[in-house]
Design a protein around this nucleic acid. Sequence first.
DNA 1: GAAATGCATTGATACGTTTCAGCTCTGTTA
DNA 2: TAACAGAGCTGAAACGTATCAATGCATTTC
Lengths: 356, 356
Amino acid sequence: MCAADADAVKRRASIKDVAARAGVSVGTVSNVLNNPERVADDTRERVREAIVALGFVRSGAARQLRAGTSRAVGAVVLDMANPFFTDVARGVEDRLAESDRILILCSTDESPQREQRYLQLLEEQGVLGILITPASPDMASIEAVQDRGTAVVLLDRRSKDNEICSVAVDDVKGGDLAARHLIDMGHQRIGLLNGPSSIRQCADRRRGVRRAMRAAGLVPDRDLIEVIIEALNTDAGDAAVDGFVRDLRPPTAIICVNDLAALGVVRGLTRHEMRVPDDMSVIGYDDLDFTAMLATPLTSIRQPRHQIGYAAAELLLAAVADGPTHRHRQVLFQPELVVRDSSSRPARSGRRSSSR
Amino acid sequence: MCAADADAVKRRASIKDVAARAGVSVGTVSNVLNNPERVADDTRERVREAIVALGFVRSGAARQLRAGTSRAVGAVVLDMANPFFTDVARGVEDRLAESDRILILCSTDESPQREQRYLQLLEEQGVLGILITPASPDMASIEAVQDRGTAVVLLDRRSKDNEICSVAVDDVKGGDLAARHLIDMGHQRIGLLNGPSSIRQCADRRRGVRRAMRAAGLVPDRDLIEVIIEALNTDAGDAAVDGFVRDLRPPTAIICVNDLAALGVVRGLTRHEMRVPDDMSVIGYDDLDFTAMLATPLTSIRQPRHQIGYAAAELLLAAVADGPTHRHRQVLFQPELVVRDSSSRPARSGRRSSSR
DNA sequence: GAAATGCATTGATACGTTTCAGCTCTGTTA
DNA sequence: TAACAGAGCTGAAACGTATCAATGCATTTC
């Protein structure tokens, strides 16, 4: 009913149609769009009128082809339904929106094939750059993309050889924070519910925990009780509780690999008729939104998720602006301890492991 | 070290470079890419070798310009960090991946300006189509986009006049399910913690609740205690509990506008030294992942989030395939009641409101 | 009054594909 | 033998924009 002429169905108006209608050359229309200060006021106005009258929308494809500059940035994550990546992606988007850029979001589900496919699609798309949490250990194809001229920033990973920009969180510090907090409150025997060491984050946190213990005069090999779970979810956390409470000298606190597992640990403790934090302190990791809202709000380690995304996008845009002169940078964020009700001083200190 | 000739730094290889290297014309290279069966085996092989040798990546921009066909689909949601949209988006992505398509995800934060901006960027980008949860009540600009030839599907909204495809959930049914469940268990006085009626979903659920009550012989105006909250979060839910328990004839069950509010209700009840479900049944809405993992797992109404996204993407691709002959369709999903521990028979039935 | 200056605009070109009419060559049919 | 068919390939045009040298025109400077 509105701006549609009888035959406008055929095809979108082009810059040529606008030029014809406004009685100017296509070059002038292009200038109105890209360098409005270069064109006289009345001409500019006339062109603008023609643009709205025709419902003209400029072709990003043609613009990109000619000018070589795209509006889109790609982000390749393990799973965009995972709250961690979700918040990171939101940070990315917020930074991109400031520069009128747009985000193409891809989930690999940790499948190298899917990662490969998405990399190719993004490269064909001619994105400005790619943010990626690699699914496959082999970085060859990612480096190939970078060599071919597309900026790349690693998300939640560090590049060892400084060949590529990255934004990550200091997980050693995260483990350290959790353990130090417990030790400060008087805990002497600590449980660590961790994921497999093959996951860098898990290995790092373990190192952090042990470091903090040694620094406090404890002996990790004696005073740290470790349980490894493969699936980092609530059910696994629940089941793992048995391993801790059946220990000859059970811990008085458990540091968990993430909040979901911590939730399971709380559930498992309830199963054993133990109360949090009176009988056992519990610390989570990730500080998911809901953990603060539980009956016993969870002490947790917070990662600045939104900031990570924002910083990664910032780094990417800088890399694009720098061009070939760009020097790769590694950004490392510090996690933060959020103390809530699930951690407290141990009820009974030291070795008096008698009745109950 | 690999496929980079000395001067390959200058610019990405084009189809022309491939043609030269393979000793064929550009038309043939194009055919190898798009209609491989049309070219002889050995030629095809030669071209393929040239492609990998040069690290050739075809330009999506040029392809789109010439062929008029894009690989990208846009999705405009209120907030991509919201678990609802997150799962919906994942459904969209999964469907798109099946067709080698890519998802551009945009959060409006319910700002009409931001929505407007994103619509324009997506249209310039030449996306195949747009999935959108409108932020502004005014659909004019969305319809304008559709009129100009970009397919549009509404997400989590219904279009009244059938001028546009949509995928939504039956919220009346959701309210009905929750109330019916409680009534079946013997509850006679029911609390409804709802959002403002200006939100279509809230109004619909209220209608569903009242419908179920009437169907069971209850009188909503007498037996339904309603509390409205503006912010649909945990703190508001917590605070709202006072309104219910101070009622002359308090309800024995509360239906909540979402799981976060339900969490707050549980917390508020604890504050009043009431237990769930013994003293009060609580039903949430959304069935967020973590609600099943709580100390008292939450009864909730589940919306098929992933399916919604998948179906919306399917609808969009169908609309694109149909071209101008397309007939708009409205898809309505049914929500599902998930019974867990937070709902049970009322402790004391009817009016004997004596001791405890 | 001529030259110089600066501003607004033009028109042609290039970007990298896809597409398609037409060419060549080989083998088959009448 | 001529005509034809079909497979395989070529070469040029077109898609819609940005860019830039060139042009026209009005104003200022000497």
